[in-house]
Design a protein around this nucleic acid. Structure first.
Lengths: 179, 179
DNA sequence: CACGTATGAATGAAAG
DNA sequence: CTTTCATTCATACGTG
């Protein structure tokens, strides 16, 4: 959610070290063992990527790079980045969803087509990047966006694309599964 | 995070002044601050929806309708309704979890309620065998309180992760290998 | 006014 | 992608 106001707590003092013992945080020590708590720097960068670079569903490769970059600001894993983008995107939409006036069910495609395709919005091969039009502000990302570019049904098209990409994704996958 | 946006918009609409209508006659007029403070009428309706109509997690569509209806009793947004149901449900569950874990008289769920439970397998600290064993008060409780039990639940819940997204990648991967 | 509690808001994680 | 869950932060409000 971005239009929110900052009543936020800046917990920029990252987890770890529970010794502090400020009254309020007293027994918050377990913090470090549970959830990732992004530092303000990390959040700043993530939002920059999201809003200024149009990153929405980063590929495994991007995830790795991003988390690597963010790591210098605090402990972070690939899955944290993955979840962050997923959540941020979802909540942005959700907010709109119950803010916007009731929708009159728009028929996007015929039932047949719909039945054939589980993920209608997947566009194989090319991903519409919102900002690629001008070429400015490009941040060295390949025009491949997450799941969109790699649809399983069309896997043959992807074959040549990036083994690297996939393998790094496996990393993310396994990190998710192990947990 | 968003440097701007600091100012709190009290879109509060001076309309419908405080005190208004019914309920809580003496409540402060100037709750000008941040949080949404539901009027008693709003709460009454929300609870009615919750308890008498079984609304737990209203869809975006329902949220819009509900908030529209509640708007006549005071300023309200969709997200307020959303959060209200979320919180109410969560705290009810939390409360039950606590009492269940703590007390030895287990407040049984009605069959209906139990059936409603989407994650029966993670019902914390509840051992079905204990009831059938003697019929007495023996409750074979796992001695886990608070966070301990939570982490335990988690481990059960982590079974299949994000199959939709991940499986597709696995497909691609295998297709690459067999290629 | 300090303080505890109830509850609104937010968000990481994960299931569906 | 959408929803749900758990947990935590922040604050409104009552009480002594």
């Amino acid at each position: 959610m971005e239009p929110q106001q900052q009543q936020q707590q800046n917990q920029q003092a990252p987890n770890e070290d529970c010794g502090g013992g400020s009254g309020k945080g007293s027994f918050l020590c377990r913090q470090s063992s549970t959830r990732w708590t992004p530092t303000t720097d990390q959040i700043r960068i993530l939002k920059d990527l999201y809003y200024n670079n149009g990153v929405r569903s980063p590929s495994a490769d991007q995830i790795q790079r991003i988390s690597a970059r963010l790591r210098q600001y605090g402990k972070i894993e690939g899955k944290n980045v993955f979840y962050w983008f997923q959540n941020h995107k979802a909540r942005e939409r959700q907010k709109k969803r119950f803010t916007t006036t009731t929708n009159h069910h728009v028929p996007m495609q015929s039932p047949t087509t719909a039945a054939n395709n589980k993920y209608p919005n997947i566009t194989p091969g090319y991903s519409p990047t919102s900002l690629s039009s001008t070429g400015a502000l490009t941040v060295g990302q390949i025009g491949n966006y997450g799941y969109g570019s790699i649809s399983m049904e069309k896997s043959f098209r992807v074959s040549a694309v990036c083994t690297l990409c996939l393998e790094s994704y496996i990393l993310v996958i396994s990190s998710l599964k192990h947990r």
